[in-house]
Write a protein that binds this DNA or RNA. Structure first.
Lengths: 179, 179
DNA sequence: GGCTACATGTAAGCGGTTACATGATTTA
DNA sequence: TAAATCATGTAACCGCTTACATGTAGCC
């Protein structure tokens, strides 16, 4: 069973929602480590329903619009817990176009190389800044409540990753300057 | 044009080789930031040949075996340089099953959570150790020669990434211990 | 002679993106 | 009443993985 299915089960284990809401959930809360568009979510929800891992109630919004409010079933919770307990080995590093470009950047002049790295650093710094603004959403650091603690941990993971990206590029830029 | 094509052009800009050699090159030198199997490489080389960006000479190995030794063409070099000079914006964060699992780990007991994180930390520490062993391959730190300098930079990027992963997990584990 | 590595391809299938398609509800 | 958002789907396509398929060369 693909990871997307577990992502959906996980989201539904937090709270019931429509496919539409779920697409927004991926865009907002999960975007740092997973993503899925509605075109992938709707068919997957259909499959999960067929497998009995989720179920939906139809809610009427306004006069005629039928919304499908999905919930996780007991069978779904069991299946999800099995995945959640399984340790999944580290996969091969994900594709990174920028690092690929850097690897071949010996063909560029120091100035051309520097321009790419400065642009990248600016983006990572902006992302880091954006992440740090979110720190205030936590009641304490680290939070005591379990659900919030995990939110904090993945947030911290993103912060540390961005700090690493920044310090890497800063070092690279310093190296370039010596040339 | 997909990134794989530029990866291939980049590899061939370093030195001419067969599709088979290239698959090994991806497995060894590039695996930290890109990957491609021979089943993807051969068709792509065919396309690139049709586009006139690469060309091959047939070499006879032994008595009958025909090897295709691929080289980048001048047109290929131009096309590659254009890509190499282009700044490509930061994409949405790549999918990370472990972080997804952590996000939902509030459903687990502290002990169950800890087991996952300890296992992960062990893998990252091992990878970091493995990376650090490669430091000796550089003539100096940082290297003066351009090609080696870029090898060093991507290596450093991998080291910093792994150090970040380790320190993130160490913090997470410490947090768990306080619960 | 047998095993491993070299060498080149194709086919099926999966996960994901982009685009197509439709219509209701809410808000300005 | 127009625009933005809510809401649900399908279709075509792309990049990549796994498996299928074949045969040669070098080494023990």
């Amino acid at each position: 069973m693909s990871t997307l299915k577990y992502a959906i089960l996980g989201v539904l284990s937090r709270s019931s929602m429509t496919g539409y809401d779920m697409a927004k959930e991926f865009e907002t809360s999960l975007f740092e480590f997973w993503n899925a568009k509605h075109s992938q979510i709707y068919p997957e929800l259909k499959n999960l329903t067929a497998e009995g891992l989720v179920a939906y109630d139809i809610e009427i919004s306004g006069n005629v619009l039928e919304k499908k409010l999905y919930s996780i079933t007991e069978k779904g919770r069991q299946e999800f817990r099995k995945w959640e307990l399984t340790y999944h080995k580290l996969q091969t590093a994900s594709r990174d176009e920028f690092r690929l470009q850097m690897y071949f950047a010996y063909t560029l002049s120091p100035g051309e190389r520097l321009a790419l790295m400065e642009a990248r650093l600016a983006e990572h710094r902006q992302k880091l800044e954006h992440l740090k603004k979110k720190e205030t959403q936590f009641s304490s650091v680290p939070p005591k409540q379990e659900e919030e603690l995990m939110d904090y941990m993945v947030w911290l993971g993103a912060v540390i990753r961005e700090e690493g990206n920044c310090s890497w590029l800063e070092t690279c830029i310093r190296c370039c300057g010596e040339t």
